[in-house]
Design a protein around this nucleic acid. Structure first.
Length: 219
DNA sequence: GCCAACGTTGGC
DNA sequence: GCCAACGTTGGC
């Protein structure tokens, strides 16, 4: 690690939560993307699978789900200092086929110390985090709506030279929390309203075949 | 403080 | 299962 990198690492680790006072009212909504794995995978004996249906079930009566397990300082600092009540978040499925955006959730509790890190039985236990000086933070989220159509990663990449050229999650695929610009957010929501490009090309092919066939039958 | 070795993420 | 990318650790 270079000196410059080391400094930014310390900055990240020591960064404090920014103070928000009466400016809160004027703050614009911010948009985010957070990842979870929808398929069964055992970490220290615990299945860590989590998907949108589970989030809906857990939050249907106004409860929030503590979103945790983020073990990267840059991602943690977004959780700790930048995510605010009312912000909206894409729920992204990673480590599965295909990787994809499944739905939208809303921040309904701002950062608080992550309980998983204190619990020895938990797959996300971290002895370096204690309640006196918590190292890792959770954010409270609830299900907002499932996308009408899930958007797979390969489809997002179709726009990586134009509409989604700067999308953080595409450029830094290993970060489990990333920012989404308002434009990117709206673009992806619009995609979810349209037919899948796969389906479109499927029907185009089908129609061509039919036309070929008709040509043969009625030349 | 540098940097090699190691570990993790996550797409393919 | 492989491996690229990159974050983290630890010896010097």
């Amino acid at each position: 690690m270079t000196q410059k990198q080391k400094r930014s690492f310390d900055d990240l680790e020591n960064a404090e939560t920014t103070q928000e006072t009466d400016e809160k009212e004027e703050r614009q909504l911010h948009y985010w993307l957070m990842k979870a794995e929808p398929d069964t995978r055992f970490v220290n004996g615990t299945d860590i699978a989590f998907d949108y249906e589970m989030l809906e079930e857990l939050t249907k009566n106004g409860e929030y789900k503590a979103w945790g397990g983020v073990r990267n300082y840059e991602a943690r600092n977004m959780i700790k200092s930048e995510m605010k009540l009312g912000d909206l978040v894409f729920f992204y499925y990673s480590n599965c086929k295909p990787p994809r955006i499944a739905g939208v959730m809303e921040i309904c509790r701002e950062a608080f110390p992550e309980a998983n890190a204190f619990n020895k039985e938990n797959p996300y236990y971290d002895p370096k985090s204690d309640p006196e000086r918590p190292r890792w933070f959770s954010i409270g989220v609830k299900a907002k709506f499932k996308l009408k159509r899930e958007i797979p990663l390969h489809e997002l990449r179709m726009y990586s030279n134009n509409q989604l050229a700067n999308m953080e999650s595409l450029k830094r695929s290993r970060l489990s929390v990333s920012r989404v610009s308002p434009r990117e957010w709206q673009f992806i929501l619009d995609l979810a309203e349209q037919a899948s490009p796969d389906a479109t090309s499927f029907y185009i092919k089908k129609r061509r075949k039919l036309e070929e066939h008709l040509k043969d039958v009625h030349p």
